[in-house]
Every structure is written in C-alpha cells, then in structure tokens.
Design a protein around this nucleic acid. Sequence first.
DNA 1: GCAGTTTTTGACCTTGAAGTACAATAACAT
DNA 2: ATGTTATTGTACTTCAAGGTCAAAAACTGC
Lengths: 189, 189
Amino acid sequence: MGRPMQFETDTAVDKAMELFWRQGYAGTTPQELASELGIGKGSLYNTFESKHALFMRALRRYSERRLEHLTDLFLAPGPIGPRLKEAMIVLAGVGEHQRGCVMVNAAAELGPADVDVNRIADDLFTQIEAVFRQAIAQGQKSGEFAVDRVADTAASQLLACVIGLSVLVKAGGPSERFRGVIDGIVDGL
Amino acid sequence: MGRPMQFETDTAVDKAMELFWRQGYAGTTPQELASELGIGKGSLYNTFESKHALFMRALRRYSERRLEHLTDLFLAPGPIGPRLKEAMIVLAGVGEHQRGCVMVNAAAELGPADVDVNRIADDLFTQIEAVFRQAIAQGQKSGEFAVDRVADTAASQLLACVIGLSVLVKAGGPSERFRGVIDGIVDGL
DNA sequence: GCAGTTTTTGACCTTGAAGTACAATAACAT
DNA sequence: ATGTTATTGTACTTCAAGGTCAAAAACTGC
C-alpha cells in the first residue's frame, strides 16, 4: 500500500489555520507552513495542491468550527441573551490575543480580488447572520426581547458589530470596552 | 536651483492611496505604483523612502480626509441623525464599488505585526469614535436622541458597526441592506 | 527478501518583488 | 549660451516566495 502518511491531514489544516490567523495570507510563506506543520515543503505540496488551496481549506474548517459552536449555543437551554453575548465574544475573538477573526481578516486582505475566498467569507457571514436572526426571533417569541424591531435588520446589525469588533480586537484595545459594546447592543434588543 | 519636480507629491499620494485601497498592501507592487502615478520607479523611490513609507503616508492622508469630512458634517446645521447616517455611509464605503475602508483593510491585513500601520489605524478609529460620541451627546442634549444610553458605549457601537459594514461592503452585498442597518442603529439612539 | 507502491525530504529551479545605481536629460540662474 | 544641480527611468542586483523533482524511506503482498 505504500508508505503511510506521517501526519494527520486534519491536524495539519488546523495548524495552518492557526498560522494564517496570526500572519495573514500574504504574510505566511510555504516554508513557515511546512515548519509549523512539522513536515517538508514537498509533503506540503503533495498533500495540498497549493498555498491558496490550503488557505481555503483552513477557512472552510474555520467556518465549520464556528457554525458548530454557534449551533451548540443555540440549542442550549435558558435565556437567549447571554448566549448571544457569548457567541459574539467568541466570534469577535474578544480576549483572544489580538487575532480577530480569520475570515474577517481574509475578506479584508483579499477582498473581491479573490473570488473563492470571498465566497467562503460571504457564506460564513450569511450563515452567522441567519443564526442571529433565529436567535432574535426566538427571544422575541419568548418575550425576552422587544418585538418592535425587525429581526432581519437587527441580525445584520449584530453581524456588522461582531465583524467590526474583530477588527478592533486585532488592532488592540481593552476587552472591557468590547464586552461593554456587546452587552449594550444585546440588552437593547 | 536645479530642475523642479514634474509631479505633485500630494497628487501622487492620493493616487497611491487609491491603488492600495483597491489592491491592499502586499497586493500592490512598486511597478504598479509607478505606473499609476505616471512616473518611473526611480522617481518613486527618490520621492518616497519605500513602499511601506508611501503606504503609511497614504493612510495618514486618508485619515486627514475622513476627519475633515466628519468635522464638516458635524459643524453643519440641522438635526444630527441624518448627518450621522451620512457619515457612516461614507466611512463604510456603502455604494462605493466594493472597496470598503482602506484603514480597515490595512488593520486587518497587517494587524499587530506592523506597529506603525496599527498605530495609524488605531488613531483614526479613536478619533472617529470621539466624533461619534460628541454627535450623540449633542443629539441627546437637543432632545433628538434618548438620554438613557451612555454616549460612550453607543459611540463604540457605531464605530464597530461602521467597520463591520466596510468589511461586508468589500465582500459584496446589496447597499440597501447596509443602509437599513445604519438607519436602524441611528434611529434607535 | 524482493517487487511494487506511496510518502517524505531537501535541494533545486523559476519568477518576480523590492530596492539601487547611474547615465541621460531637463530646468534653472547668470 | 553655459555651468550647475535635480530629476528621471532603465538596467541591474539581490533575495525570497512559490513550487518541482529525483532519490531515499516505509509499507504490503508474494
């Protein structure tokens, strides 16, 4: 059957994601990736078609992770407000050492110039927005939130806010303030 | 006294800003810059120390522009709400062909890895936030906005929202939705 | 243990980005 | 017209990013 692979592909993708997260796409070299994954550059290109392909794979993995986490939160019992706040804190990367959100970084760095990446980012944003919308609707039904707001627009607001916070987090600043913003916006629902 | 310069430095910085805006920092080559400015690479490096220096200069110029515009809006007469909305639309680049905001792009692309750029970005964000805070306070004093919100936190919210919108604008999407978000958040003040 | 197969490795190659040097050129003062 | 000084852009250097490849290594079946 030939020589078995000396490393797990999934683990490698995770590590790559971590590096891209910290350094961005252009700021990360194949050599650095190989070192980080503990493999040779040849293996890297043998396993992943290109740096770009690996990047997209890392982004997709990130999306899955985030959506999984969101779904879990959404299924949990109890008032929805605190869970919304928690979700926003995690998504924006508040308290997570100035990394922000990989997807936001990717969207801002590559933007429309890279249609593939752009599409992945857009998908994630859209799905997060949908989860927010459901959460808001649920909170309105249970009486936790006021019903005088359009869930749709409010969800977009939350999304924009989370994305903005992730940029501010990356630029650096007190977590206190960021939590305050999240509290304020969710308490206002 | 020797030969005078054949191009205006300020105009050149403006054009460079335009290019960086569209293509990002890493995505823009010195050759492209020279072509865009209509000069040779030699002149480029003779006038600006390096690509990085030119980039920072373009970012500073962008900051000045934006703050100037904000100040103008703030000094204008009439209700503050519409002006706030207008400011947010301009800052986020709504309806401006998927470019978003250069500073947000720069902060997300280079992040904490580039302390100089990071500082410029942080400065602009802080100043925009301050203007928002003043505007909100003014609106509260005039009775246009409710007084039950802390102007400080609300300003941070607006800032986060604007930044997030600029990312969403860059990723592409209907301007309609973005205007709706802005209307919603300002009308809720 | 040998054939056949797949993976690993690091040296190697190609390309283009970033920056430098300089000869030619242009504008000024006198 | 002439000397002087600054500007210009081509050509060149350097360096590393991104990717390839041949040879060695690790496995399976016979």
